[in-house]
Nucleic acid binder design. Sequence first.
DNA 1: GCCGTTTTCGGCCCGACTGTTTTCAGTCG
Length: 573
Amino acid sequence: MPVHNAEIAELFNRLADLLELEDANPFRVRAYRTAARSINGLSHNLVDLLGAGEDLSKLPGIGKDLAGKIRTFIETGKLPLLEQVQARTPAALSDLMKIEGLGPKRVKTLHQQLHISSFEDLQRAARSGKVRALAGFGAKTEALILERLEAARHADIRSRLVDAEDIAAALISYLEDCPGVKQVCIAGSYRRRRETVGDLDILVTAKQGTPVTDHFVAYDEVSEVMSHGKTRSTVHLRSGMQVDLRVVPQVSYGAALLYFTGSRAHNISLRKLAIKKGFKLNEYGLFRGDKRMAGATETAVYAKLGLPYIEPELREQRGEIEAARKGKLPKLVGRDDIRGDLHCHTRATDGHDSLEAMVTAARKLGYEYLAITDHSRRLSVAHGLDRKRLLEQIRRIDKLNEQLNDIVVLKSIEVDILEDGSLDLPDGILGQLDLVVGAVHYMFNLTRKQQTGRIIRAMDNPYFNILAHPGGRLLNKRPPYEVDMKKVMQAARERGCFLELNAQPARLDLTDTDCMLARELQLKVVISSDAHSTANLDYMRFGINQARRGWLGPADVVNTRRLAELRKLFRRH
DNA sequence: GCCGTTTTCGGCCCGACTGTTTTCAGTCG
């Protein structure tokens, strides 16, 4: 059973919680959390790194000790320190810390005074009024605990970016209606364009804070006001989304935007850098003593720290500050670089719109080409195309192309990769297409070795060009299948194939760290909308966001090429 | 426990809000 990075990060986080409950050195606790964050951001699997003989202690936030613990866990499946700590302190206590307002100190008190070690224990104690009697607790805290117990049980669910956008749009226009409000900006992971968003961080500039936070907590959709101050307030919406609002004066806008956009790790690095240069950085500005040296814009703050502007998508503490210092930040791919879409569906299979409608929509977007990639016969739920129906579509596209002069419709298919790695349609018909997109749609539960072999065998087919949604995950619904992504990428590069970054907001597959890996391996990526309607073609922007998070520039992306060059890339022999 | 163009020892980001207090600890982002 291969060990995932997320698993190791989770262990370190749990260990940090439990050590914190034991009053361990807070900096030691922080070291575990920093390491966990660092591991989650890696573009390589720790197992692979170890296998390749890499020195894990070279990774940021990982020293000799933690490198040793990672190695032990990978080799034995055990983390002895965690087992020792769990023998003293119940692991479930770290779950209690997920309840809003309960941190290590209070959980420790609850455990020591009332022997509480589970949600059920806590609910019982709070209902019978025992919690309010504890020092540092009161009736209000007890009531809040009862209210927030339920929410904490599914506190880990993050919203997909596209859903967060819906919630945000209404809220922004509501806030803009508030008198005195100058600018409204959503910061946080939303601005960094992470694939999922845990909460919304909204920054507002205004002279007076109170009228704005008052207006904010009065929003129709608010289900609970968590805190309500002069410059800062937090609410929960009926949708379950938490929203933090921060009001700052115009002169602090840039510094506040930096602070509120994060990531936390990026901010901490910037603050350390500020200290080194004799400054202090907070959300109000960059100060030398009491004098504000910068703060109105992010660019000004970065400049005073000796750095160029760093795009929000890069602010994940993945080497961006180092790259900025050396002037080696990548030029990121943008919407205007994209010349076409290489994955979409029509009514012939499970799309909602006709071939002609899809093409018209793509022309409106200014695309030079659009590949029609309906499903193949095995995907019967989608009414997949067999040889005969695909031939009909080919003829129809040829005819359509004769009438078009500003866009070329490319003949293609999203062909199923069968269990043995063969393709769902014969080479004879695949050879008549402009390009072939292959995808795994079933048998997700193969072993890592089997799945990797299956996909690489599919790429052995000389007509294969693009591997669609390479990880197979659906956000919040289905985890990725087991596959050695690095091996798949290397195999693709050797064979002249490409991997798709599927831009559907529920897929976003490749992940951002996958993109970083592809870039390192010099494998080009195709960003595709996988549109099932004309409106879905707009999903492209989510793919671009993800690609930018993965440090990809126009040269790293296949569909920034003109058609002639594209055709060359797809000619494998 | 990590880290080092000040350091291999001695530091470790910074501020707002709440509830329980009577000046602040705890929590959060």
